[in-house]
Amino acid sequence: MSEQTARRAAVLGHPIGHSLSPRLHRAAYAALGLESWQYTAIDLTEEQLPAFIAGLDDSWAGLSVTMPLKQAVMGLVDHVEPLASVVGAVNTVLVQGGGRRPTLVGANTDVHGIVAALREGGSGGTASTAAVLGAGATASAALAALAELGCAEPVVYVRSLGRTGALALAAHRMGVHPVFRPLAEAATGILDVDLVVSTLPPGGADFLVPEVAGRQVAGVLLDAAYDPRRSAVGAAWAGAGGSTVDGERMLLHQAVEQVRLMTGQPGPLTAMDAALGDALG
Rank of each mutant, 00 (worst) to 15 (best):
A271M: 05
T129G: 02
R7G: 04
A218D: 14
A142L: 01
A152D: 13
A271N: 01
A205Y: 03
Q71I: 10
Y39L: 08
A279I: 03
L63N: 06
H172L: 14
P178N: 12
L222I: 03
A54P: 02
G203W: 04
G242Y: 10
I53T: 00
V209A: 09
S160N: 14
A141M: 02
L195T: 10
G75Q: 01
H25D: 05
A171H: 11
D57C: 07
L44S: 06
M67A: 13
H25G: 08
R163M: 04
D43G: 00
G162K: 07
H14D: 14
A137D: 07
E3G: 12
W37T: 06
A166H: 14
R230Y: 03
L167D: 04
L252S: 09
L169Y: 12
L49S: 06
H18L: 03
S231D: 01
A117L: 04
V105I: 15
S160K: 07
A61Y: 01
L32I: 06
L221D: 04
R260E: 14
H177L: 04
A238I: 05
D227H: 15
H177Q: 14
A6S: 07
P201S: 08
E153N: 10
A166E: 15
Y39I: 04
P15V: 07
L269I: 12
E148P: 00
L149E: 01
L118G: 02
D43K: 07
L149I: 03
G121E: 06
T5Q: 15
S19L: 01
S243T: 06
P210N: 00
V65P: 07
T66S: 15
H14I: 10
L169S: 15
D110N: 11
P202K: 10
Q216N: 00
R26C: 11
A130F: 08
